[in-house]
Amino acid sequence: MIGNPLQSDIRKHTVRSDAEKARICAANNADLYQAMFRAHGLPDQRTSAFWSSDAIAPPYYSNMTTLDPDATEEQLVEIGRLTDRLGRRPGLKDGFSRLDLVNKGFRLLFSASWIWAEPHGIAARAPEDWTRIRDAAALDRWEHSWKESGSQTDANVFTPALLSDPNIHIYGRLAGDGFDAGCIVNRSPEAVGISNIFSLTGTPQVFRDAISLANIAFSPDVPLVGYDSGAALNEMTKLGFRSVGKLRIWLSDDGS
């Protein structure tokens, strides 16, 4: 059955509050977390209030991310359960900056902004020299460059199982036998997320390229989302994104 073009147009131009947009950003990010953990063969669970996993998280990933700004009591119960299960306080992403955890054995790692760009409706042209990562060997070279750009782990973070997920695209900019820039794009029902943007050359063009790749990878008729802070947030703001909410990353205050 062919859909109604008018209904489709209405959906594309639905007026959402920033609070609704922040929820969509958080849900998209949780989808990426879920894909990452499952690619590692790790268990996870998801409710309307949070996504979580009581397995040891891959580097740079939390054991929990919140999905509802008003479900703090349920989230605190889950934090307690994860603490008991893991034998330590979990790293977690407070998607709406609603949890006050200073007196509960946590320290604030950083704050950031959820960012949102309205759909453009027209897919951008593919940026030059970028390619989608499609095999384990290329992914290994891509991760090597990602780590070179500032990662402080020797662990294997991105596994080949990600490459078979239809909702995840990993892109790299070719440079000799490897890559000098990259990003990840993930699709959710209501948005397309952009994450893990890096560049070894330090040029801001990588942000514009990542946006183009996101529009090409999936439908240009849905919003683009992500989260950033500092210089990266400034660059994405220049390119049409705006902040729709705040999030905070918490770690155990014992340094684990």
Rank of each mutant, 00 (worst) to 15 (best):
G121T: 09
R141K: 12
Y33S: 09
N196M: 05
K246C: 01
K246G: 00
D253E: 07
A232L: 01
A138N: 13
R46I: 06
M36D: 00
G193A: 13
W116N: 06
S188P: 11
I170N: 10
A57C: 05
I79P: 00
T66D: 02
V244K: 00
Q205Y: 05
K21N: 02
L163V: 08
G176L: 11
A136E: 15
L42N: 04
R125W: 11
K21G: 01
P58W: 06
H169A: 15
E190S: 13
T131I: 15
R242E: 07
I211A: 04
S243R: 03
H120M: 13
T72K: 01
K246V: 06
T237C: 00
L163H: 10
P59R: 01
A57K: 04
N234R: 07
R187Q: 14
D253A: 04
K238P: 00
D180G: 02
R88H: 15
N103V: 13
S17K: 07
A217W: 12
T66A: 02
V244C: 02
A126R: 15
N156P: 12
L200W: 07
S195P: 07
F218M: 05
P223V: 02
K238T: 06
D70M: 00
I197G: 01
A210C: 13
D209F: 01
F241T: 01
E78Q: 10
W146H: 10
S212F: 03
L101A: 15
L239D: 01
H40Y: 06
G80W: 01
A71L: 00
Y171A: 11
F106S: 09
S111Q: 14
A57N: 03
H40A: 07
F110N: 14
D94E: 15
D68W: 00
V222I: 14
L174S: 15
A181D: 04
H169Y: 13
A138C: 06
F158D: 06
V15S: 03
P127R: 12
D253I: 03
E78C: 08
L92C: 13
L6R: 06
R81E: 09
N4M: 06
I79Y: 04
N156H: 15
M64I: 03
T203L: 05
L82M: 04
S111K: 11
A27S: 09
W116T: 12
G3V: 05
I56W: 03
R38K: 09
M236S: 03
L213I: 07
F110Q: 07
G178H: 04
E20K: 05
L76W: 00
S229A: 11
A112S: 15
K93W: 07
L92E: 12
A55M: 05
F110A: 12
R242V: 00
G226E: 04
S151V: 12
A117N: 10
R38V: 10
L174T: 15
D100A: 15
A136P: 09
N156F: 15
I168Q: 14
S229F: 10
N196F: 01
D209Q: 01
G3I: 02
L76T: 04
F207T: 05
N215K: 08
S111I: 08
A231N: 04
D154Y: 09
P119R: 03
L163W: 06
E20W: 05
F207P: 02
D68Q: 01
P220K: 04
H169M: 14
L224M: 09
G91R: 14
S188N: 08
I79T: 06
F50L: 08
G230S: 10
A214V: 05
H144L: 14
G202N: 02
D44I: 03
P5D: 03
G87P: 11
A55F: 03
